[in-house]
Design a binder for these strands. Sequence first.
DNA 1: ATGCTTCCCTACCGTAGAGTAAGAATCTGT
DNA 2: ACAGATTCTTACTCTACGGTAGGGAAGCAT
Lengths: 212, 212
Amino acid sequence: MAGGTKRLPRAVREQQMLDAAVDVFSENGFHDTSMDAIATRASISKPMLYLYYGSKDELFAACISREGQRFVEALTPAGDPALAPREQLRVALESFLGFVDQHRNSWMVLYRQALSQQGFAGQVQNSRDRLIELTAHLLESSTREPDPGTDFTIMAVALVGAGEAVADRIAGGEIDVEKAADLLENLAWRGLAGKKRPDHLESEHPETGYSA
Amino acid sequence: MAGGTKRLPRAVREQQMLDAAVDVFSENGFHDTSMDAIATRASISKPMLYLYYGSKDELFAACISREGQRFVEALTPAGDPALAPREQLRVALESFLGFVDQHRNSWMVLYRQALSQQGFAGQVQNSRDRLIELTAHLLESSTREPDPGTDFTIMAVALVGAGEAVADRIAGGEIDVEKAADLLENLAWRGLAGKKRPDHLESEHPETGYSA
DNA sequence: ATGCTTCCCTACCGTAGAGTAAGAATCTGT
DNA sequence: ACAGATTCTTACTCTACGGTAGGGAAGCAT
């Protein structure tokens, strides 16, 4: 009589548990989240968590794994080889920021929790490194005359870092995806102080200036 | 007979304790660090920690406070009003990255630990926000014809984010300060794919490649 | 040489929370 | 309608660790 729902097949319950776990982890962090809290949130009893996932660590790892999966999937449209490299970068940017905009919990769990939790950082750093390598590739492909000695990987590190910082603001609801994508695209190609996008833009309208 | 050293004046012991605490916190994170571990590292007994700082939280807060202080101090040379804004930005960049290069533990504690520890994040976010505002100001001051509607704060967020990402690589010993500063300066003014610094550069010499 | 202050320790308490034992329902095939 | 598998719960155990009680020894006055 845990709450009403009962006797669901394992596969379903597992997802429910992960949903609850991601929620609570993203709210309170790994250490300040108790298994009881997750169980309660999932309207289930604690031993179920241990039956399906073996331990708190494994449960958290499962969260990272599923959310990381989703994260990578959200970026695959950017891999479309039909697009010009620079367009790919634009798509990647929008996919990335769009993913954070929705799925804020995933973002919080993956980046603000997992990355700082020794023992899980490596697992996330993998997806991150792939993102960086992808970015480095796109930068390299779309640069006409690369200055000799240019380290595209470090450039990608910087750009991804900028993206993550901006993503945090998106997750905080302070700016919207389009504006952020514009900013980062300009950052990549013209520098911060450079003019904005040369073509269209402002087409949307002149209104507020901030999102919310 | 805790280890040999004995009966030091309070002010000294307090610093010892903070040194030890910063070390251990930066290695293991807040939650995976026990007060016993810190006491042992400081060659002191646990009740001393509680006598001088009242609790684990307060001790951690003291760490953040001291390291944050040092962090801000390291950036003050950039405030020199005699410098042109763009030079100020360059100095700020080098001060920031230089600080991370030495004081890696401070960096880890402040950013990788405190920022992800709910309850302390706000305290650090303060210093961070000031850094962002400072950067935004410098950007604004040194931009000739600001495109109307340009949000310098968000730009600063992006640039600082890039700086933090690069700083992590510095802390990891993967690149050196000068190279990172060049990269970020170029990022700010010309964009990632832009040419490197037009003037001197490579003037330093080809030596070691690492600092320490 | 006696009190007062400062510094410091050994030994303990209390509890939050990870993990488990034991078994009760419910479903599925035959 | 019975056996076996699957889902699920209540009610525990046990340990790590934050925090404390109580006292001891060293310096410094007068």
